[in-house]
Design a binder for these strands. Structure first.
Lengths: 201, 201
DNA sequence: TCCTTTCTATAGCGATCGATACAGAAACCA
DNA sequence: TGGTTTCTGTATCGATCGCTATAGAAAGGA
């Protein structure tokens, strides 16, 4: 019973996602966002609240689309080792895809923040810690199943693979290609503890 | 034959270094810098030119002080393996030190930049690529000396260790401690190719 | 066709950005 | 002690920041 929106909210959100993905939260201005989305500030604020809430919605969308491969790999693979190997392999492809900005939004979009947006920095930091904890849970599964030696430092392994993934994101943003990141992934997997399947222990 | 500066330029530069180190290039305002340095804008501009040149001087100072351990390790150790192992071990200590902001300034101070400071982003990117090339040169030394198998992908190894170091910086900024980073370093070294010294090949 | 409602566009809000004009203060030379 | 030079502090420049008041335009119900 009133005038309807003249733009596609979903398309506009995806455009905002890619803009934030490229330059980060603080470095992306409302002017740049509205120019990219093809709308004017009042339309943005009416549809998305404010810059902070738009970014939070962008992060949610990212986790359910471009970043969903992590959760899929961790839930679908039978062992922790296979799960982490797949995460690394798919990250290599995703972080270097030509279809969208390089690297990972959760890792790189809120690194340089002033005091005004410290909470945004903390939000992404929380998601990174959550992802690291998810890695650890699958490694713990392998430890419980006896696939890796008893007494293995599973938290240390999770921190290592989290660091490798974050390094892959930085490398991708610095220009490394798909093959470069696959080599990183393969070398990282060579750090996996020798276990039952490999004929030791 | 004229009035002399009322503040210590070197102390002020170190203060600016730590401020940029914590929040990054764009997120650090002139107001925040002058407040931290205890001077007023005209003094800053007279002594350092402008924000861009101040940052470039900060980066140079960082490379010769807090970041100098990398070059030292790479030049002083007899083998590439020992050099890289030492870089990782010292990075673990440096990135988590309580004496200054966490992580690496070259890696984290210009990640989220708008179009206006794309050149600053590119400057640090160049230094990161230079560091990666320095890693590769030492790995090539080991290859030439027959310490690692013939045909080893030395560029791939260099990219791997560069990624690990960048991941260590991110982990440190997210709260990981010295021991956590040492574990990352140890696991990363387990990816080093098996060579003559290890009794294979 | 008119009324209500919600969108859109223009224009501009106060605050902050990087950077400076200006005048007073301090240090050296004559 | 006066003159020259360079620093320092105040106050502010134009531009941009995130955000919004206001008015006109469009869509549905009566």
């Amino acid at each position: 019973m009133a005038r309807q929106r003249a733009f596609d909210r979903d398309v506009a959100l995806e455009t905002a996602l890619r803009t934030f993905w490229r330059h980060g939260y603080e470095a992306t201005s409302i002017a740049e966002l509205t120019a990219a989305m093809g709308i004017r500030p009042p339309s943005l604020y009416a549809a998305f609240g404010d810059k902070r809430r738009l970014f939070e919605e962008v992060v949610g969308r990212y986790q359910q689309t471009h970043g969903a491969f992590t959760t899929r790999a961790l839930t679908e693979e039978p062992t922790g080792r296979q799960a982490i190997e797949r995460v690394l392999r798919e990250a290599a492809a995703e972080y270097t895809s030509e279809e969208h900005p390089r690297g990972c939004l959760i890792i790189s979009a809120a690194v340089n923040c002033g005091p005004a947006s410290a909470e945004v920095e903390e939000l992404l930091r929380g998601f990174r810690e959550e992802a690291k904890a998810a890695l650890k849970r699958r490694i713990d599964d392998d430890a419980a199943a006896g696939l890796i030696p008893a007494g293995t430092d599973t938290a240390g392994l999770a921190t290592f693979y989290a660091a490798v993934i974050q390094g892959m994101s930085t490398q991708a943003r610095d220009g490394a290609g798909h093959a470069d990141l696959l080599r990183i992934a393969a070398l990282a997997m060579s750090a996996w503890p020798v276990g039952r399947r490999e004929g030791v222990g």
